[in-house]
């Protein structure tokens, strides 16, 4: 895996590249990928999942499960959720005054009350202050890493995907943190971004591929590029979506399906 820690190019610049060099959209990959997935997945899952679909998410691509203590796990989950909210707010040009309080208010507006919000509400003053600083740092890294957002771009944050395969026996569920531009405007200009609050690792590359595969199946058009930005380290990783990358994504999904159906 090769990641970039380049302060001169933002992740959005790297993803969008040179406008003049964008190819025409590829529309033939979707059917080929779907056929390849369905043939192999049916052999793995068999008929037993028709009333209880096998759901494959990006976290299932990880070969070694993450082991965290309960408190660390809660902090990590809250940080992840808050950074996704930060991205959603930045995508509409929001300017933060107090990132932690702003993000907490936004999150509460969406879900009402839940276990994780209650966890935050019950932190003592010192822990809350520490965590607030941590969130401010991640938000600053996100803003810096993203760079300027063009006023004419068509941005969609938190794009949910639910691709049903094998007549609904398998569901590929995914959330693409940011998708820019739309399909069907002449040149292929759809790019995808994933956001992580941890350092990049081998799984990051699999997640990039998973996003590209899901977007291709969902829209019938292959995206141009897919990338990931780490708010923990500022690293970014950007890949062109090629046939090889999508073929590898299919292999990743089949491997995950094998692991989940025969643990």
């Amino acid at each position: 895996m090769t990641s970039t820690l380049d302060s001169t190019t933002t992740v959005l610049q790297a993803l969008r590249g040179n406008r003049a060099e964008r190819p025409t959209p590829r529309t033939g990959d979707s059917a080929i990928l779907r056929a390849a997935l369905e043939d192999s997945l049916y052999a793995i899952v068999g008929p037993q999942h028709f009333f209880d679909p096998l759901v494959i998410r990006s976290q299932d691509l990880r070969t070694e499960p993450l082991v965290l203590t309960t408190a660390l796990h809660s902090f990590a989950r809250v940080r992840g959720i808050m950074m996704h909210h930060a991205l959603r707010l930045l995508s509409v040009g929001y300017s933060f005054s107090n990132p932690f309080e702003d993000l907490l208010a936004a999150w509460r507006c969406e879900v009402g009350e839940n276990e994780l919000l209650s966890f935050i509400d019950h932190l003592d003053t010192e822990d809350r202050a520490k965590f607030s600083t941590d969130i401010a740092a991640h938000t600053a890294a996100l803003r810096h890493g993203l760079g300027a957002i063009g006023s004419g771009w068509s941005l969609r944050s938190t794009v949910r995907v639910a691709n049903l395969l094998c007549a609904g026996a398998v569901a590929l569920r995914d959330t693409i943190d940011l998708a820019i531009d739309t399909t069907g405007n002449g040149a292929n200009s759809t790019v995808l971004l994933d956001l992580t609050t941890t350092a990049l690792d081998e799984t990051s590359e699999k997640i990039l591929r998973f996003h590209a595969l899901n977007q291709t199946l969902r829209t019938g058009v292959t995206p141009l590029r897919t990338g990931v930005l780490s708010t923990a380290t500022g690293e970014q990783l950007v890949r062109d979506v090629t046939t090889e990358l999508l073929t590898q994504a299919v292999a990743d999904v089949l491997e995950a399906a094998e692991r989940k159906s025969h643990p």
Binding site: R88, L89, V92, Y94, D102, A105, A106, R156, S157, T182
Partner: peptide
Amino acid sequence: TAQLALVTSDALNWSH
């Protein structure tokens, strides 16, 4: 304003 921005973000996704 932060909550309003989140509402705007979701509505913008829908509109797109």
